[in-house]
Nucleic acid binder design. Sequence first.
DNA 1: CAGCATCCGAATAGATACTG
DNA 2: CAGTATCTATTCGGATGCTG
Lengths: 138, 138
Amino acid sequence: MSVSGKIVKTETKTISELKACPIETTFKVVGKKWTILILREMFNGSNQFNRLSENIEGINSRMLSIRLKELSRYGIIRRRIISEEPIRIDYQLTDIGRKLLPLLTEASKFSLSCLPSEVYRDGRPRTSKQIPKHIPVH
Amino acid sequence: MSVSGKIVKTETKTISELKACPIETTFKVVGKKWTILILREMFNGSNQFNRLSENIEGINSRMLSIRLKELSRYGIIRRRIISEEPIRIDYQLTDIGRKLLPLLTEASKFSLSCLPSEVYRDGRPRTSKQIPKHIPVH
DNA sequence: CAGCATCCGAATAGATACTG
DNA sequence: CAGTATCTATTCGGATGCTG
């Protein structure tokens, strides 16, 4: 079996229940510009359009709007209208969305331990003791 | 501390050793089109330009060449010239590159368990028992 | 076999202004 | 507050042909 799980080999035949590479699929869904920053902020507790807009440096409302719609479509977040006065719109991670945390954690761990020149100001590697095993939310 | 590890809060001051979001950094490095397919094939044992070219459907030599250089630059793969006759070029994952496996595994797990309509031909969800916990290499 | 050069269209995203 | 509309700039990647 391949790393992608794309091809399942049984005794004599090769079958696949898959129509796309699972790894690639996930990257297509969350790998676009701004998407993981939005998710990161939502894990950090931002749940309104303007909070997200403020906390994600450089994003404009058009891109934020587009990405929020994509994430909603995939069931990763949910848009809700809070009808109490003043009426608000609130975005929440769904159960599915919260399942992205291990992926984000692995992504964080990888760059912190393997790409020091890309993430650290001083560009110098840290020992594994200096790198948090679990990236806390908050 | 944020989920990104971007801000480290100590008693009274907020300091950051980071110049970029670690999650975003990893996605920038491996999130481009073709990159993870190349890595997947390398985890599956392809280590020559033309093997990769054959095994990654749709890629052209220009894109393969560009991506291999990027990955080399990040230290994720290594290009070697095998001087035995016939002379060959061979690409290998480095120790750093192999550290990407948990990330690829998480990516795979996510789509298999949370995006069935994107990965399965029949679009139907599987129970967690039906989803491999560890995506084997080979 | 392992690429590079060029050209070009498509997709992506930024800037700006406006709205119920 | 929570977006939409429009226009433009840039980036990306596909096609094709060539090379030591």
